[in-house]
Design a protein around this nucleic acid. Structure first.
Ligand code: MN
Ligand code: MN
Ligand code: ZN
Ligand code: ZN
Lengths: 152, 152
DNA sequence: TCCTTATTAGTAATGATTACTATTACTAAT
DNA sequence: ATTAGTAATAGTAATCATTACTAATAAGGA
């Protein structure tokens, strides 16, 4: 948690990373535990969760928080879109180059029958922006070795 | 569950609907239970969940399955987009008219600092399409008083 | 008013994720 | 190589949101 904690490359972490990289199926933590378990029969589900969390925080992998469904993980850390089957919950990549994202574009790029899509924006609400500014001021008084935290 | 079940308008259901309609805050089931509880001190959380489920199935309200967060409900059943604050998890409406949805459009329409967005398409994968067709064939043999289930 | 049965309150169960804790094992300094 | 410090682990308990169960209640049509 400190800024000067050294993360160690454990064998467990390495195997988790390797097994995730082998597949394009966006497995859940549980799926991955089953996979890794074949090589490390003693590894615990908690270890898989913790490492997936760490790896995604350090941007080596990507966490997919699928609306209303179980969390999934992706060895491809680059930002890209996904499509989920409403029947079997399978998740696949969507090889579209962002921005001009319309359903008929997907229709041409994917084997799926597209039924719809959901866009979720995220950001900082006006209230929190004010709070953030106040904190910034306090920090600026004590020390000011921070990179630019806020944008725009 | 049967096709000929008659739903009854209970007082609980009515109050849940009324209280949800009063706010624009996209409350969770728990939030709504607290609100409704003031008028109906004996109502249980399960009843709130069940009715919110029923009401959204009959399209009187809308379920918002926010990625990685608690489910929320919206008295406005019309399809529209939302924005969520990464700090306080508050969810607000996004008054944009779909299709040409880019972050800078949001930037002009919302008070939020937009940090990004996530698009989730949903549909039917090729595998499931095949299965669906097989079921269709079986159904067609026995009886064929079905509306068109599959599109495209 | 009287049935039928959808719905309820209360509570238990489930499932995903996180927290805890004693033990293990990297890593760097002696 | 030995030791000390401390990340990380296995195993398990706890938490949180949601769903399931069940005996009792109450819509609402006859
Ligand atoms: Mn992917
Ligand atoms: Mn809304
Ligand atoms: Zn499918
Ligand atoms: Zn906020």
């Amino acid at each position: 948690m400190d800024s000067k904690t050294k993360t160690r490359m454990t064998y467990q972490r390495q195997v988790i990373l390797e097994e995730l990289a082998k597949v394009t199926s966006h497995p859940t933590a549980y799926d991955l535990h089953k996979m890794v378990n074949k090589r490390l029969p003693k590894i615990s589900l908690g270890t898989v969760y913790r490492n997936l969390e760490l790896l995604s925080e350090s941007n080596e992998i990507q966490r997919l928080d699928v609306s209303g469904h179980q969390r999934r993980f992706d060895a491809n850390a680059k930002d890209h879109h996904h499509i989920r089957c409403i029947h079997c919950s399978r998740v696949d990549d969507l090889p579209i180059d962002t921005t001009s994202v319309l359903e008929d574009i997907v229709f041409r790029t994917s084997e799926y029958t597209v039924l719809g899509h959901k866009i979720e924006f995220y950001g900082i609400c006006p209230e929190c922006k004010v709070k953030e500014q106040k904190h910034q001021e306090k920090d600026d008084i004590s020390k000011d070795k921070n990179k630019s935290k806020t944008r725009r």
